[in-house]
């Protein structure tokens, strides 16, 4: 049941990708205007806080995208249908792109608020490890020709990577906290004292980025499907040719 629902959702997403894309343009435009002008500056961070409206949505969509890759990888190993590999790679590419973007924006924000681009904070380090794991995932895909082998290989890497992430997080957490007092100064998203205008701006941008993810995913799914179809078309083209090359007496 779940499989069929997910499957039809993928089909729907692919068909309606452009509509989702058109929908996200005004939302992101409004979100940008709200983020830059309408929402108030922060008491402590001033104008720097505005980076939050891009940092938080990108990292949220990145985690969502990589979780979708995990789900698709599990489905692939379970059901052995190549369509799940399309979903896994489509989402992984978007995930890697957005995680990198989130880390870059986070580094700039970090420089402004903490005074350094990078700290070995558990959340930062875990995210960096995550992006390296999935960069390796994409690299290995580029080196493997056979689509079945590639699908299963990548599924295993995605699953192992995901299973490993909590262990990475705890190891880095202890690595930091056992040596010095935990000083995780971080602007808190769930801060109850957050201004209503800030909260609304963040929500609008979150919705906009999620729709952007839907658009990109739908387009990438279509591309993956077409690529696979192209492979089979090539094969079909070869078949009549080889039969034409059969010895004359066989005709």
């Amino acid at each position: 049941m779940v499989r069929r629902d997910l499957w039809s959702f993928m089909v729907w997403l692919e068909r309606n990708a452009n509509r989702i894309g058109f929908a996200c343009v005004p939302i992101l435009a409004i979100g940008t205007i709200m983020a830059l002008w309408w929402s108030p500056p922060d008491v402590h961070m001033g104008q720097d806080l505005r980076l939050m409206y891009i940092h938080v949505p990108t990292i949220w969509v990145a985690y969502l995208a990589l979780t979708v890759t995990l789900g698709a990888s599990l489905m692939l190993l379970w059901k052995r249908e190549l369509r799940w590999d399309d979903l896994a790679v489509a989402s992984a590419e978007i995930g890697v792109l957005l995680t990198t973007l989130a880390i870059v924006v986070g580094a700039i924000w970090g420089k402004l608020t903490w005074g350094v681009y990078w700290t070995w904070d558990p959340r930062l380090t875990t995210t960096a490890v995550l992006v390296i794991i999935f960069a390796g995932y994409l690299l290995l895909r580029a080196l493997t020709e056979d689509s079945w082998v590639r699908a299963r290989q990548s599924a295993v890497i995605a699953i192992i990577g995901f299973v490993d992430i909590p262990v990475v997080h705890f190891s880095v957490l202890w690595w930091r906290s056992l040596h010095q007092a935990p000083t995780f100064l971080r602007p808190n998203l769930g801060d109850p004292t957050m201004d209503d205008r800030m909260e609304l701006t963040l929500i609008v941008n979150l919705v906009g980025f999620t729709l952007l993810y839907g658009f990109l995913l739908g387009r990438r799914l279509r591309l993956a499907r077409l690529q696979r179809e192209l492979e089979t078309v090539k094969w079909d083209d070869i078949v009549p040719e080889t039969s034409a090359l059969e010895p004359v007496h066989a005709r």
Binding site: I133, G136, L139, T144, G161
Partner: peptide, 19 residues
């Protein structure tokens, strides 16, 4: 069976063995 396995293997193994 991967062509560049001497490069790919450390690339895949090292981030996972961080902990």
């Amino acid at each position: 069976a991967v062509r560049a396995r001497e490069v790919m293997l450390p690339l895949l193994v090292l981030p996972v063995v961080v902990p």
